[in-house]
């Protein structure tokens, strides 16, 4: 999948953010991204999926990765391509092994209050891949970026990393 091998190189546009580990930062980030996707004609279904996966990934990075430490940051990048949207979220934590996360749908785990975020990310995105020992997650959702989006793509100014 091109989005995984060289996501930035093929993107119509790419935007990035650097956020402190503060959950109150998430709504503003989501608002910017939803405004962009709405402007580009993405469906409500796609926007719901991307919004949810983004929030789960960023919240995990802030809470479990950076342990909400104010001096640690979360880097978020979003790219639009012809056939997909990709999101990359990186934290500064110790990393983790996603294969060791208990299955939240198992009968014995149903009453646990947490541990469902990765499951939802995997459901609502077409591809979820952890890198850098769990400190980076790359998610891809296949969805057509409309004609209008392609025409406008170069008017979106990516924020310098």
């Amino acid at each position: 999948m091109s989005a995984l091998s060289s996501e930035a190189a093929h993107s119509l546009c790419q935007i990035s953010w650097r956020l402190p580990s503060d959950l109150s930062q998430i709504p503003g980030l989501q608002q910017q991204i939803m405004d962009l996707l709405r402007q580009k004609g993405f469906s409500e279904r796609d926007m719901f999926a991307i919004r949810l996966a983004l929030e789960e990934a960023v919240a995990n990075a802030m809470k479990h990765g950076n342990r909400l430490l104010p001096h640690k940051f979360v880097d978020v990048a979003l790219g639009l391509q012809d056939d997909c949207v990709w999101i990359r979220v990186c934290d500064e934590g110790d990393g983790f092994d996603p294969d060791q996360v208990p299955d939240p749908t198992a009968e014995e785990n149903l009453e646990r209050p947490c541990g469902r975020g990765i499951l939802l990310m995997r459901h609502f995105m077409d591809h979820v891949e952890y890198r850098d020992q769990g400190r980076t997650v790359l998610m891809v959702r296949r969805c057509a970026c409309g004609t209008e989006a392609k025409n406008q793509a170069y008017y979106v100014s990516p924020v310098a990393e």
Partner: peptide
């Protein structure tokens, strides 16, 4: 219209 796993956690606790 929208919720995340954080709210599911609250519902699980409320259920208990």
């Amino acid at each position: 219209e929208y919720m995340t796993s954080a709210f599911l956690g609250k519902l699980v606790t409320l259920n208990k």
